[in-house]
């Protein structure tokens, strides 16, 4: 074996115990520091370290590395990396500036559209954010339920027409990713916000086959029955929920439901 290989293997065996497949970002940075000490002008190393700095919240250092990589090799597209950096550091308008530049060159990259929506949202540029959410959700109809909810919640902040748009978006989400209690539950709240308790009731009822056997579902349904002037049915529903709570294995959540049930019954008188 060549001496250099022997040394290498000896060194590897020293490191073997801890250098298993994944390390924290801090150790990546330490290793990148060492490599950069030898090759200070390697753009790929600078970009990698910049990303690691971003993940560990060292914004200034991240920016320095990314910008230096660009100086060395002007062909590198650093816009997405910069946008991520600014988004995570809270400089949302700066993030927008760079993500826009990135999207100009890569208009079909869904994660960039998502980052634009989140940046505009966080920058409180509501109109732009709504447009960006729309662009993203059009490109990615099977988006995460959390993304549909984030976009719908933003719509809902924009007045009465916004509530309608939020509901339309939720319905679009339900069509694309299926009926879920998160989307429909939020839509139910929105219907209440726009003073449509019957619609709210109907939306909640659509979840019956998913949640119908639970006291939580029944107690919410009882509240909606009260709002739609069906106090008698609400009482029956509460009794049903109480009987079920007595039978089910007790958990802190079910104990809390019990208290909620009591307070609704008090309201009913």
């Amino acid at each position: 074996m060549r001496p250099i290989l022997q040394i290498m293997l000896a060194l590897i065996s020293l490191y073997l115990p801890v250098l298993s497949a994944h390390q924290g970002d801090h150790s990546s940075i330490a290793e990148l520091d060492a490599l950069l000490a030898i090759s200070p002008d390697a753009p790929s190393l600078l970009m990698t370290r910049g990303a690691a700095y971003t993940r560990t919240g060292q914004w200034d250092k991240a920016e320095q590395d990314i910008r230096r990589a660009k100086q060395i090799d002007t062909h590198i597209n650093v816009e997405f990396a910069l946008a991520q950096l600014y988004f995570h550091s809270g400089a949302f308008n700066n993030a927008l500036l760079h993500i826009n530049q990135y999207i100009e060159i890569n208009p079909e990259y869904a994660p960039a559209l998502l980052l634009k929506a989140r940046s505009a949202h966080a920058a409180k540029q509501t109109k732009l954010a709504l447009q960006s959410w729309n662009d993203y959700l059009t490109m990615e109809p099977l988006a995460h339920p959390g993304d549909y909810l984030a976009a719908a919640k933003l719509h809902a902040l924009t007045g009465a027409s916004g509530l309608k748009k939020a509901l339309d978006l939720i319905d679009q989400g339900i069509e694309n990713i299926g009926l879920t209690a998160q989307l429909q539950g939020y839509a139910m709240q929105l219907e209440l916000d726009r003073n449509q308790p019957t619609r709210a009731y109907n939306r909640w009822r659509s979840l019956e086959h998913q949640l119908g056997t639970t006291p939580k579902y029944k107690i919410t349904l009882a509240q909606l029955l009260i709002l739609t002037n069906r106090a008698g049915e609400a009482r029956l529903m509460l009794e049903d929920a109480r009987a079920q709570l007595l039978q089910l294995r007790k958990t802190p959540a079910r104990e809390a439901l019990d208290l909620k049930l009591l307070s609704i019954e008090k309201q009913l008188g």
Binding site: M8, I12, L19, S20, E31
Partner: peptide, 13 residues
């Protein structure tokens, strides 16, 4: 030596 450590580090990480 340093670069070897770093490289072997990388190759294991």
């Amino acid at each position: 030596h340093l670069v070897l450590i770093v490289i072997s580090t990388y190759c294991l990480v």
